[in-house]
């Protein structure tokens, strides 16, 4: 009796919805074939690489965007927790496919499960009045445990394909998954663009934001749900285990060298894109897992940022400007 629901999730109607995005993907592919013709870059001759690069570029924008708000609230761990629950979502998708032979994309079930987990974490924190390591660790372990149990229950063929979810894989980014990611990308970037003022205020000073009439609870919910979407989107390439690094490492690097919040957002995106593109290139020619290489490159970039930050500090003018008069009536 749930068949209707499952059919809805199946490829058919989804393909209709995603049709314009498939068109965009083919356009993107044409562009990269053209670039390959001009530059002779070997890895651009494969269409899966085109999709992987597009997905990578999207990750390089959305992960540090939401990561900036998380890191400065000292919530870096939340990405990890949600990634592990997203793994449970993948397992649910694979389980449904295995038992009912449905064509549900495991990424769709991952989105659903991760968003539910995000709300759960947020509700726990509202009830206990604090985000705490313990509840986060419990959600993280529960997600991962549920995932492994579901997969082992359904043994046989399933365990084989699990590596791609754990560690990510460039070659398995299907057109459908790339299109789903584009949808997520649109939702995430649009939401952050719309609510940037409120997210910044809540991040910087929660009580002052609440006093100024911003619903802190509501924006916290928005933030964790966006995190869930980013994590699932980035999981395809980065893998469950390493995906959270993209939320944290470029942001930490940007914080070292940036003078303002706006600048740190831009710099973190630039650093993330650098890590993604270099990482994909290196992993292709080196034959290594992309997720791991991307994170290693990102960490190397972070190390350089720390040094650059220190040098900047030394080179900068140490003189403190004079405080102005505070007598406003005469101003």
């Amino acid at each position: 009796m749930h068949v209707e629901l499952f059919t809805l999730l199946q490829a058919g109607p989804l393909d209709t919805v995603l049709a314009p995005l498939y068109w965009f993907l083919s356009l993107w592919s044409d562009l990269l074939f053209f670039v390959e013709g001009v530059t002779g870059l070997e890895f651009l001759q494969y269409q899966f690489m085109h999709r992987a690069i597009l997905v990578g570029l999207c990750i390089g924008v959305m992960a540090p965007l939401i990561g900036t708000f998380l890191v400065h609230r000292q919530l870096a761990l939340i990405g990890d927790a949600l990634a592990h629950t997203a793994f449970a979502g993948v397992a649910v998708g694979l389980f449904l496919n295995g038992v009912f032979s449905l064509g549900v994309s495991p990424y769709l079930t991952a989105v659903i499960v991760a968003v539910i987990a995000a709300l759960l974490i947020e509700l726990i924190s509202e009830a206990t009045d604090a985000y705490n390591d313990v509840s986060m660790a419990i959600v993280l372990s529960t997600g991962f445990a549920l995932g492994t149990v579901l997969i082992s229950l359904n043994a046989g063929g399933l365990a084989v394909g699990i590596n791609q979810y754990l560690f990510g894989n460039l070659s398995t980014v299907s057109a459908e998954n790339a299109a789903i990611l584009l949808v997520l990308f649109g939702i995430i970037v649009a939401t952050i663009a719309l609510t940037r003022n409120q997210l910044l205020y809540v991040t910087f000073d929660e009580t002052a934001a609440a006093v100024s009439g911003i619903s802190v609870t509501w924006y916290n919910r928005v933030m964790v749900m966006l995190t869930a979407l980013v994590v699932v989107g980035a999981m395809q390439i980065m893998g469950v285990i390493l995906v959270a690094a993209m939320l944290v490492v470029p942001v930490a690097g940007a914080a070292q060298v940036s003078k303002s919040f706006t600048q740190s957002l831009l710099v973190s995106v630039v650093l993330a894109e650098l890590a993604v593109l270099l990482g994909i290139g290196v992993s292709y020619y080196g034959g290594a897992t992309a997720g791991g290489v991307i994170v290693l490159v990102a960490v190397a970039i972070y190390a350089v940022s720390v040094i650059v930050g220190k040098l900047q500090e030394r080179a900068s003018d140490d003189s403190v400007p004079e405080l102005g008069s505070i007598d406003s009536t005469e101003a």
Binding site: H72, R73, Q74, F204, D205, F261, Q263
Partner: peptide
């Protein structure tokens, strides 16, 4: 403020 001390 409640933000981390490193927030640029």
């Amino acid at each position: 403020a409640s933000a981390s001390k490193e927030m640029p």
